[in-house]
Each structure stands twice: as structure tokens, then as C-alpha cells.
Computed example of a mutant assay.
Amino acid sequence: MALFMDVHNKVEGLTADAVAGAHAKDLEIQGQYGVDYKQYWFDEDSGKVFCLVDAPDAESAERVHREAHGLLADQLIPVQEGVIPGH
């Protein structure tokens, strides 16, 4: 499994309810592809959304978004989890 941060640069009409609903749809089908959408962050004013996802590969993470709600990320960046020393 690999950890990715996906970035949606401008989701039109973004609201807290809309992003929560899209995330819930991801959670409904993610198991079919061995994917785990862990957390998301968003900014309503800019329309930006960030999703942290553990997936076998980038294509599997993208497939979940495509099938769940059709909102594909503009970027899918491989990341590694970091820990701040002393925290």
C-alpha cells in the first residue's frame, strides 16, 4: 500500500455538506479496490479539497473517486507520514 495526497484545485459549489457527502460515497465503495480514504481537508472559499488516501496504487485511488462521485483530483502526490520529534 502507498500513501497519497490528492488535490482538487477548484470544486465548483463546494460546501462542507457537499464534501462530506462525496467522502461518504468514497467510503461506501473503497473496499472494492483495497483503498482507504483516511481524511480530507477543504477550503470553501477557494474550492480546494485535499484527501489523504492509502491505496495499492494511484489508479485505484482515482477509480474510487471516479465511481463514487466523478470528482477526480487535479494532482495525486505520493507522500510519507511524518512525525514531529517530541510530540
Rank of each mutant, 00 (worst) to 15 (best):
D26W: 01
G21A: 08
Q75I: 06
L76N: 11
L14W: 00
N9L: 12
H87E: 14
Q39I: 11
E81S: 13
K25L: 11
M5Q: 13
G21I: 11
G34T: 01
A73M: 10
A55K: 02
D6E: 14
L71P: 06
K10M: 02
D57N: 15
S46K: 10
A61Y: 00
I29S: 03
D26H: 10
G82Q: 12
D17G: 09
D36N: 13
E67T: 07
E81V: 09
K25T: 01
I77T: 13
D26Q: 12
A61V: 10
V35W: 05
Q39M: 11
H8D: 04
R66Y: 11
G47K: 08
E44N: 08
K48P: 06
I77P: 05
G47E: 06
I84N: 00
G31V: 07
L76K: 10
L3T: 08
D54G: 09
M5I: 13
Y33H: 09
V83M: 10
Q80W: 11
H23G: 08
I84L: 13
L72I: 07
D6K: 12
G34R: 05
H23C: 04
D17N: 11
K10I: 07
D45Q: 14
K48R: 14
G70F: 01
A73E: 06
D43K: 13
V79K: 00
S60V: 02
M5L: 15
H65I: 05
I29M: 03
I77W: 01
E59M: 12
D54E: 15
A61T: 08
M1P: 15
D6C: 13
P85N: 12
L52E: 05
Q32F: 01
M1D: 07
F42D: 06
F42W: 06
W41V: 03
K25E: 14
A16C: 03
Y37T: 02
P85F: 11
E28K: 11
L71C: 09
S46C: 02
G13E: 08
M1N: 13
R66K: 14
T15N: 10
V35P: 00
M1S: 15
L71N: 14
P85S: 11
G13H: 04
E44Y: 00
Q32M: 10
D36P: 01
H87Q: 14
T15L: 02
E12T: 13
G86C: 04
Q32H: 12
H65K: 12
L3G: 05
M5H: 08
S46L: 03
P56N: 03
V11Q: 04
T15K: 08
L71Q: 13
D54H: 15
K48E: 05
K48N: 10
S46H: 06
D17K: 12
I77Q: 09
V79P: 09
V53N: 06
H69I: 03
H87A: 15
P56S: 00
E81C: 09
A24V: 07
L14G: 03
V49R: 07
G47V: 05
Y37P: 02
H65L: 08
V83F: 04
D36T: 10
A68P: 08
D43R: 09
G13R: 04
M5Y: 03
Q75E: 15
L52Y: 01
P56E: 02
M1Q: 14
K10R: 13
G86S: 08
S60Y: 01
E59P: 01
M1A: 15
L71R: 15
E62C: 14
G34Q: 09
S46P: 08
G70M: 05
I77A: 02
E62S: 15
